[in-house]
Design a binder for these strands. Structure first.
Length: 201
DNA sequence: CTCTAGATTATCT
DNA sequence: GATAATCTAGAGC
């Protein structure tokens, strides 16, 4: 699928990207999922209808986008880990710059190096997808399947990837086995926009 | 190539 | 009060 962001300012270009890496979180019994705590204020939309955005904040500075799946009352979602820019790369770079300048950093200042980031790496990680597409708490609960939605999914006119690889999920060291090792991260092998910690390309 | 520190705050027990 | 579905630069091999 493609991820589409309509601009708040009509002068700005629409941002479109092709999803090339995701992770699945299947339910309350999945001890890597936010649903393992049961229903909370944060994860409430995961208990609702599928096709809705679940957006959460992590590590004090990053937003992450998920697509809710499964019938209501069965909390599950797919984390959008990486997107390959299709159109609106300039707007993505601008959005990343805006996001970076909002956060104060010490030794690591992403805004200093942003100009050197290659176009295909503008959304190559779950935190970077949200930075590049200006996704925040305001998008939590948004219907991603509504064609009039400012943030939505669209079928890729070029079709699905010809090859998809899978492996263990990332950043869930707290999860016990077998959840830690379930091969529920999926990516397009060799794609330059796959996240760095996802083995990069 | 691998490993590590440090940024920063909502949300969890 | 501790931790987190992250990211980057820099050090070491």
């Amino acid at each position: 699928m493609r991820l589409v962001r309509e601009p708040a300012d009509p002068e700005t270009e629409t941002r479109v990207g092709r999803i090339v890496e995701v992770e699945a979180y299947i339910g309350p019994h999945d001890l890597a999922s936010h649903a393992r705590f049961g229903r909370t204020a944060r994860n409430a939309v995961m208990f609702g209808p599928a096709g809705v955005a679940y957006v959460y904040f992590v590590y004090g500075m990053y937003w992450c986008l998920n697509v809710v799946t499964e019938p209501e009352q069965r909390p599950a979602a797919v984390l959008v880990r990486a997107v390959e820019p299709v159109t609106g790369a300039a707007a993505m770079r601008k959005a990343r710059s805006d996001w970076a300048s909002r956060t104060r950093r010490g030794a690591n200042r992403p805004q200093d190096s942003l100009a050197r980031v290659a176009g295909e790496r503008l959304a190559s990680g779950p935190g970077l997808v949200c930075a590049a597409f200006s996704i925040t708490r305001e998008d939590d609960g948004r219907d991603l399947c509504d064609p009039s939605s400012a943030l939505r999914l669209e079928t890729d006119p070029n079709g699905a990837p010809t090859e998809i690889r899978s492996g263990r999920r990332i950043g869930i060291d707290y999860a016990p086995e077998p959840w830690h090792s379930m091969p529920w991260r999926f990516w397009v092998p060799g794609n330059a926009s796959v996240s760095a910690q996802g083995g990069g390309r």
